[in-house]
């Protein structure tokens, strides 16, 4: 008996893209929780960048105002770090977001039980099924985090302008902002992939005969 060769990544990619584009609205909703969570993360990070650069200006008035806004400024400190409370809220929001992603991906797998089973009957290898789901999650994660961190960055900058005027923009370090956005995108994409791992494994392990048995 001959063996089936593994397929190039291109094919899983094209199937995954087709799935996303056909279920566009659906994938948008799946991605929305990620967009919001990453937006919150990026908002916090960029807000800190803004505060940091304002603090570096060294104006007593501004430092006082930052302090009243809840930034922990210990006397004699050189920089501002995110407060513990802030960090906890971000971690919690990301946690909720991962649970949301796992939930949405499991739904998407069980919705497609028959489709996956059919593909397996036609000769799809387990690896291909895993790849399709991981790629889908990766694409959703990347676009979602990109939009999320843009949203977070813009709102953080606007907030800074509202509170401190143009000084917040003129003094800001753009490298730090870009860095924060990249962190947001990276974390968002990683979380999306993490959330898709188990559902993808579940899909790949399914026996075609079980998939056929599912009533729809």
């Amino acid at each position: 008996m001959k063996r089936l060769a593994k397929l190039p990544l291109k094919i899983s990619l094209s199937i995954a893209l087709k799935n996303i584009s056909v279920r566009f609205f659906r994938s948008m909703i799946t991605t929305l929780s990620l967009v919001l969570a990453v937006a919150f993360l990026a908002f916090t990070l960029v807000s800190n960048d803004v505060a940091q650069s304002l603090f570096a200006v060294g104006d007593i008035n501004i430092t006082g105002k930052l302090s009243t806004l809840g930034y922990d400024i210990s006397p004699g400190a050189e920089s501002i770090s995110a407060s513990a409370k802030q960090r906890w809220i971000v971690v919690l929001s990301l946690l909720v977001c991962v649970v949301g992603i796992v939930n949405a991906q499991i739904m998407s797998v069980s919705e497609r039980f028959r489709e996956i089973g059919t593909m397996k009957c036609l000769g799809a290898l387990d690896g291909l099924v895993v790849k399709i789901f991981i790629i889908e999650a990766g694409i959703q994660g990347m676009t979602g985090s990109l939009f999320g961190s843009l949203l977070g960055m813009i709102s953080a900058l606007l907030m800074g302008m509202l509170r401190f005027g143009m000084l917040s923009i003129s003094s800001i370090s753009w490298v730090a902002v870009l860095n924060s956005m990249a962190t947001g995108i990276l974390i968002g994409t990683m979380l999306s992939l993490l959330g898709a791992l188990y559902p993808a494994y579940m899909a790949a392990r399914m026996q075609p005969v079980d998939a056929m048995r599912v009533e729809q």
């Binding site: 008996m1 001959k2 063996r3 089936l4 397996k120 009957c121 036609l122 000769g123 799809a124 290898l125 387990d126 075609p208």
Partner: peptide, 13 residues
């Protein structure tokens, strides 16, 4: 006796 790749080949071809 077939492994996953052989079984996939069987189903496919």
């Amino acid at each position: 006796q077939l492994d996953a790749y052989e079984l996939a080949w069987l189903r496919c071809r």
